[in-house]
């Protein structure tokens, strides 16, 4: 349902809002129908609501949600329907009644239905069994660890960096001291819009200190990284779709926003080939950039990535 836009920046809340709205509407409809003597039986209320959730997840949300997540959501929705239907004794009786009617074959129609189920359910199970056993052409699922645990330290150009204690030497205030507060204060908004204060433009030739390093990092980025990671750092560069999976999307709150700068430094320096064992099957072709960039350039490009996305690197108390 791509015609109904999911607004960038508000998508997660939009989805929750839409669902809440729908539940409100259903409650209202149910109330009005009941008032006019057209109440929907409990059983069908439950079934229809569950179907609605399943269809909403399948067709409303885009890009498509992987099956594993839809299966989790669908199962939990089924549990929710059960909780709702069996919350009170009266509702539970009403919910069970159509099922019992079929099982007891209270009318000839129910008897036919029962026979239908007797044939249909085994057929359905057979179908499931068949489709799960039939050899598939599809590539198997890869349980890939996107953020592997980093080593305690990493050696780049002969120098050892302890990941827990090192810091970006270019995240500095005008006095040249490491200062997160100062650098964070130069970012005014976090989203894909304007990110810098009017007085804090890295491309101003007079910019000094932190801003100058951001500019230098940006130059490194656009000379080396943007072909894959994209102009907007969203992992959709010129060559991005030649890879599977596509390169990391830094604008996603689940990537660099969750990590320390030293983690990014380590990943950039060592590349796909330097991924630890737990990251099997190492589905990354990122070069080990230490072979092409200096240590300073790597730190600067990391600085630029945070500046551009508007995220703050993770720090510890």
């Amino acid at each position: 349902m791509t015609w109904l836009k999911l607004v960038e920046g508000f998508m997660p809340m939009q989805m929750l809002f839409e669902l809440t709205l729908c539940v409100g509407l259903f409650a209202l409809m149910s109330y009005l129908l009941k008032k006019n003597g057209l109440a929907i039986p409990m059983f069908w209320q439950g079934v229809l609501f569950w179907l609605f959730i399943v269809l909403y997840l399948k067709y409303r949300i885009y890009p498509p949600i992987p099956f594993s997540v839809r299966a989790i959501y669908g199962t939990v929705a089924l549990v929710a329907v059960f909780l709702w239907m069996s919350a009170t004794e009266a509702d539970w009786k009403k919910f069970k009644q159509p099922i019992l009617n079929v099982m007891d074959a209270v009318t000839p129609f129910h008897k036919h239905l029962r026979t239908g189920y007797l044939v249909g359910i085994p057929l359905l199970l057979w179908g499931f069994a068949y489709s799960s056993l039939v050899p598939s052409q599809e590539e198997p699922i890869e349980l890939r660890t996107v953020h592997p645990a980093p080593p305690a330290s990493t050696k780049v150009h002969g120098k050892t960096f302890v990941l827990q204690t090192s810091s970006n030497p270019y995240r500095v205030n005008p006095e040249g001291k490491y200062d997160q507060e100062f650098t964070n204060s130069l970012i005014v908004e976090q989203s894909m819009g304007r990110l810098m204060k009017p007085t804090a433009n890295p491309w101003d030739p007079k910019a000094e200190g932190y801003l100058k390093y951001v500019r230098e990092g940006g130059e490194v980025f656009f000379q080396n990284c943007h072909f894959c990671h994209g102009d907007n750092l969203n992992g959709r560069g010129l060559h991005a779709f030649a890879f599977n999976p596509i390169p990391a999307n830094f604008t996603d709150p689940g990537t660099i926003a969750q990590l320390q700068e030293t983690f990014i430094f380590w990943r950039v320096a060592k590349g796909g080939i330097g991924l630890p064992r737990e990251s099997f099957p190492w589905a990354s072709v990122m070069p080990p950039w230490e072979q092409h960039l200096t240590t300073d350039e790597i730190w600067k490009v990391v600085l630029f990535e945070y500046w551009h996305t508007g995220y703050y690197p993770r720090t510890w108390d």
């Binding site: 999911l6 997660p12 498509p64 949600i65 992987p66 997540v69 890939r144 599977n244 990391a248 689940g254």
Partner: peptide, 13 residues
């Protein structure tokens, strides 16, 4: 591939 990246833009959040 269909999702266009490791993180889903809605559920990833």
């Amino acid at each position: 591939k269909a999702m266009g990246g490791q993180q889903h833009p809605v559920l990833g959040n």
